[in-house]
Amino acid sequence: MAKTLVYLEAKGDELKKISREMMTVARMLGDSAAGVISTGSDAALASAGKLGLKKLANLAPENGKLYAAEAFAAELAKLVEAEAPAYIIFGQTNLGRDLAARLAATTGVGYMSDVTAIEPGEPPTFVKPLYAGKIIGKFRFKGEPPHILTIRPNIFSPSDATGAEVATETVQPDYTSARSVLTSIAEKAAGMIDLREATVIISGGRGIGEAANFQMLFDFAEKTGAAVGASRAVVDEGWIEHAHQVGQTGKTVNPTLYIACGISGAIQHLAGMQTSKCIVAINTNESAPIFKVADYGIVGDCKEVVPLLLEEILKSRG
């Protein structure tokens, strides 16, 4: 079996779930993994150290410089040289995809983004949705390793910590050589769950009626621990920010439960949510296309259904 290298991610003191998902993929593809992370948090570093890695390097931030693709790619290229991994695994996240692409461009090695399945074999086959999920594409790497992949969040089951601890090596990236640097992160307001990490999403479309009615969805989200999504139509209307948009030109999400309220189910919207485990549609029009992909549907006015649904869910939870 082969060696792998994973680029782990943390958010504050917590390892992101995607980091544990990357470990699962690393174990599918190899028998020993080295890890790279970039964090200023000892707690996050300690959690990463317990994932069962053979080696862990921390690309340390410096004077408010938190990330720099050029500098990080240069350090990763050195590690790749030293470790000779067959696969380098990233998350399909904002910074993961940026660094993966930069490293691919720097080293000229094979690159495959947004992997959603891996079929074993010699060599393995990597699967990803194409054309907004209308097509499933299967790919194989050619030529000498290493090969770079980014994995879609919420698809692979997260690995648990193994208990064994590995010491961290601190690496100081050369930020002076980088001509674009991440200098600040405006953290999300407390309680705002990121769509890509949410297990339950309640999404609103034009059928919500007006901007003020989004409050009903935020209310639902806050009380049930869900995140709020939206169709492009309402983002373009200015009812809600683009960060909430689900679909081809918005976010791709894979929650356990996706509740579409007053969304017609245009192909570009489906592109972003059709891999959800369970889809519920609430729509006044019984022939709305969303009902074709929904597991369960209620024909009705979402302004009436959503508050009742919230009440019943809270009741059922006791």
Binding site: G108, V109, G110, Y111, M112, T125, P129, L130, G133, K134, I135, I136, G137, K138, F139, R140, F141, K142, G143, H147, Q274, I279, A281, E286, F291, K292, V293, A294, D295, Y296, G297, I298, V299
Partner: peptide, 20 residues
């Protein structure tokens, strides 16, 4: 090219759902 497309296919259709 270091990556080769081996197959493109339509995704499996979702099972038809149910109106409550």
């Amino acid at each position: 090219a270091r990556l080769e497309e081996v197959q493109a296919a339509h995704p499996p259709a979702r099972e038809p759902g149910r109106i409550i």
